[in-house]
């Protein structure tokens, strides 16, 4: 496993997991048999710092989404720690947990299923403020966030079906930004979008990291998409982080088998035209 410190090590991680493991129980094979278990996360160490974009890649089922459930505190790990701003979120007090909940927000793959189709966009945007009981000038906050994601304010009166996939993903990002998070976790945020639109969303995420100093955890299957967005990538396989590196290093000199498989799976127009893409 290669070690890299592309980021000043002295900057303290904002969100961090240490030696994290999670086990799920599966259905019994037969009535009296033991319940089989599956170790979906196996002693994971992972961290993101302010203004840093880190990637998480891995084949389907490797545990990426499960890790995000730990990072956002919707699930408690069997073993290990989740630290926000240096404090264990499961051991710290209620006030710290509230700060953590508000400071770590998620953007999911399919904006069409993550936004309520019957709700006007304006109402959807206010939702997180209401559920997190955040006070303040909500109307001003909405306008500020719309501006950050490059949407016009007439979007507020409209319903999700009136938008394209790329616009909806911007709206979903806007909603995640509403509580003023310090860390954004994006789980396959562009897989459901067309290439030309993917670029718009990826550029937006990069701008947010730079302009707002957000920490970004970017999850994808596709190493080339992650390479555009992040400066450090962790590769997951069967619940473990098997390799960490800069995207280009992983691409040029993959060490772990899982990384080699992901690199081998990248198709490009060039290799296609050269006639050796499917060799």
């Amino acid at each position: 496993m290669s070690t890299v410190t592309p980021f000043p090590a002295e900057v303290r991680p904002l969100l961090e997991v240490r030696q994290l493991s999670q086990v799920y129980h599966l259905n019994r094979q037969n009535l009296f048999g033991p319940r089989p278990t599956l170790k979906v996360l196996d002693t994971i160490d992972f961290a993101v710092r302010p203004g840093e974009a880190v990637g998480l890649v891995g084949e389907s089922g490797s545990g990426k989404t499960t890790l995000t459930r730990m990072l956002t505190g919707v699930e408690k790990p069997r073993e290990g720690q989740v630290l926000y701003d240096g404090v264990d979120v499961w051991l710290g007090g209620e006030a710290h947990r509230k700060l953590f909940r508000r400071s770590v927000q998620v953007v999911l793959q399919n904006p069409r299923s993550s936004l309520d189709p019957r709700m006007r966009v304006g109402t959807s945007l206010l939702e997180p403020l209401r559920s997190l009981r955040i006070e303040g000038d909500h109307a001003a906050r909405v306008l500020e966030v719309l501006d950050q994601v490059g949407l016009d304010k007439n979007a507020l009166e409209r319903f999700p079906h009136e938008f394209s996939g790329g616009q909806l993903q911007r709206i979903a990002i806007a909603r995640a930004l509403m509580p003023g998070p310090k860390v954004l976790i994006a789980d396959e945020p562009v897989s459901a979008l067309d290439v030309s639109i993917q670029a718009q969303v990826l550029n937006l995420l990069k701008d947010l990291v730079k302009n707002l100093g957000l920490g970004l955890v970017f999850i994808a299957h596709d190493l080339s998409v992650v390479a555009y967005t992040t400066s450090r990538v962790s590769v997951m396989s069967a619940g473990k982080i098997v390799e960490v590196g800069k995207p280009l290093d992983l691409f040029n000199r993959p060490q772990a088998d899982a990384t080699k498989a992901l690199v081998g799976a990248i198709l490009s127009v060039e290799s296609g035209l050269a006639g050796n893409a499917l060799a």
């Binding site: 390479a227 400066s231 280009l248």
Partner: peptide, 10 residues
């Protein structure tokens, strides 16, 4: 997105 023209610093 292609791997050919990615800047080293992201």
């Amino acid at each position: 997105p292609t791997m050919d023209n990615i800047a080293l610093d992201g």
